[in-house]
Amino acid sequence: MSDSAATDAGIVSTARSPDGAAVWVDGLVKRYAEVEAVRGIDFEVATGEVFGFLGPNGAGKTTTINMLCTLVKPTAGAARVAGHDVVRERDDVRRNIGLVFQDPTLDAYLTAAQNLRLHAELYRLEKKVIAPRMRQVLEMVGLWERRSSTVGTFSGGMRRRLEIARGMMHSPRVLFLDEPTIGLDPQTRRSIWGYIGELREREEITIFMTTHYMDEAEWCDRIAIMDHGQIVALDAPEELKSQVGHDRVTINTDDDDAAIAALRERFGVEARVHEGAVTFGVPGGEQFVPRLFDEWDPAHPPIRSVSVSRPTLDDVFMSHTGTTIRDAEEDQAKNRNRMMVQMMGGGRR
């Protein structure tokens, strides 16, 4: 425990002390009977940060959140949330966190307002602030007008928004959002990101979220890429992308094969045809383009168009895990199917 803190101190100079960080995790492990869901992760989240966990299905994101929110006991390692130990000071951790679980946890038979009131009572909010606070969070997610409707009549997006409002009801210092936008249409996803942005501006809050949408990870201040229970990369999205080390250049020509050969001979880059255009990666793509035109032999097929794009998080994920997130999920799905067949056959659980 202490030696891992010491080695990491060199990397994140100011940070590896448990005080002051909103979330501080050291060598956290969770082992279930059949799988090691989390295999020793270390990270920390500064107060006020939006921190994202990105990873395919089964990477261990939810398990990590469950340990941080005291619902699951770590097999090994330590973690502190809002300055409190998640094993020894459970009650203090719970007072200071808000949660939006991956699966819905509303009472569909109660109204929106009754759900929030129940929450307020469980979190022992002062009586006189309950009503105004409820109004505030409901207005934030645009559900104030629907406060007296039964949650059972809400659409999936409305329920999600209500859960976010509920998670905010008691002004938590750290808000955990496990896949807050999964299964929602792009518009609702955007508005949910709107609330999250709004939250950061209005309240002093740290947000810890998981997602497997690459585009959403871009909204985070920092992201950790998780795969098979381990963190394989952790940095700001821009940093991660620049660490990939190359930009993607795409050119259109009349003769792709000749162009690929020319690129190999003259510039030493391996290009391939991807979606009908010649694509290759080079460091500093913008500087490469002028050189490309200067040195492009008139004998080569003329270049009709060229575009340069920065590496995406997909490229980052690929460079760290060797697969795209989609492939990783397909593998997982296959495993899951196999497991399900086993379970039905073996009658386990």
């Binding site: 005291t70 619902l71 203090d92 699966d103 946890t105 009472d107 469980l122 022992r124």
Partner: peptide, 13 residues
Amino acid sequence: EFGFLREMMVAPV
């Protein structure tokens, strides 16, 4: 089954 139990289980009570 419908998840609501977790809301109560994670509350600071």
